[in-house]
Amino acid sequence: MKSIFSSLRDGRGFDVSLVAFPMAFLFLLSGLPLVYNIVMSLQEVDMFSLGTFARPFVGLKNYATLFSQPETWPILKNTALFVTASIAGQFLIGFGLALFFWNEFPGASWLRGLFLVSWVMPGLVVGAIWNWILSGDFGVLNYVLRSAGLISGNIFWRSDPAFALWAVILANIWLGISFNMILLSVGLSSIPKDLFEAAELDGAGAFARFFTITLPMMRATIGAVVSLGLIFTLQQFDLFAAITSGGPNNASNVAQYWAWDLSFRQYDFAQGATISVIMIVFVMIASVIYVRSTRQEVRG
């Protein structure tokens, strides 16, 4: 004990403790719950055995049960669609805005900052706002579409099974645009200006410059933005709770909302944990891509 204190005082071992504290923090608050979750997915858990660790192990039975349920594949399909459409929308619009604000014009950086408003708003608030926008009878979106002559009757975004998931995707794209735009703006501004000037003198037009200089130089940033987007989208819960609650009849249900619903509304903790484990695998893949893309930064 004495030697630990003296090592702190003389500086040796201080570096170890600097690493130890965050490691302990991560282990207690992230590592243990993760492991506990994986263990639960291999056990039979009910309301009565929730307070104890000594629960019967059932192997992969929970996984088998999960995939035998009729709603599982549609919900996983919804999740894939939600993730793909959200990231595509956030990324494309975010990149477009980043390129737009990259042209220095008066007030560009000020306006770009304003976009962060959507990012700082809590998901539930964003959900509430979109509930009004998407409202079937008096929503502004229906009004705009009707005035533009694109639709003849009102769309009931939140209760029509064909549109419910798209309603949440729409809100989620809006929520994520500013994050994508800011990260991509940072990536754009870190490309040295003289590369574009050199390319221009070398005979490259605007499109050639975009595809031969901008995109390759943005590879690391794009990798980071897309993998972070995947992680955030798989975490998106508030919007489902606020807009559709996964309904109607699971038409807009996704894995993360379903896991919560199973665990905390139907008290089927084992099934909830099983879905979580499947999601962990996907998030892990995204994390590896993210770490790799930030490591492989190409800078002159």
């Binding site: 040295p192 003289d194 590369l195 000037e197 050199a198």
Partner: peptide, 17 residues
């Protein structure tokens, strides 16, 4: 790009990728 002139930059401006 239509002036047919080449330039060597102070930073060299080599394409790093």
């Amino acid at each position: 790009r239509k002036r047919d002139i080449a330039m060597v930059f102070q930073s060299y401006a080599l394409y790093p990728h």
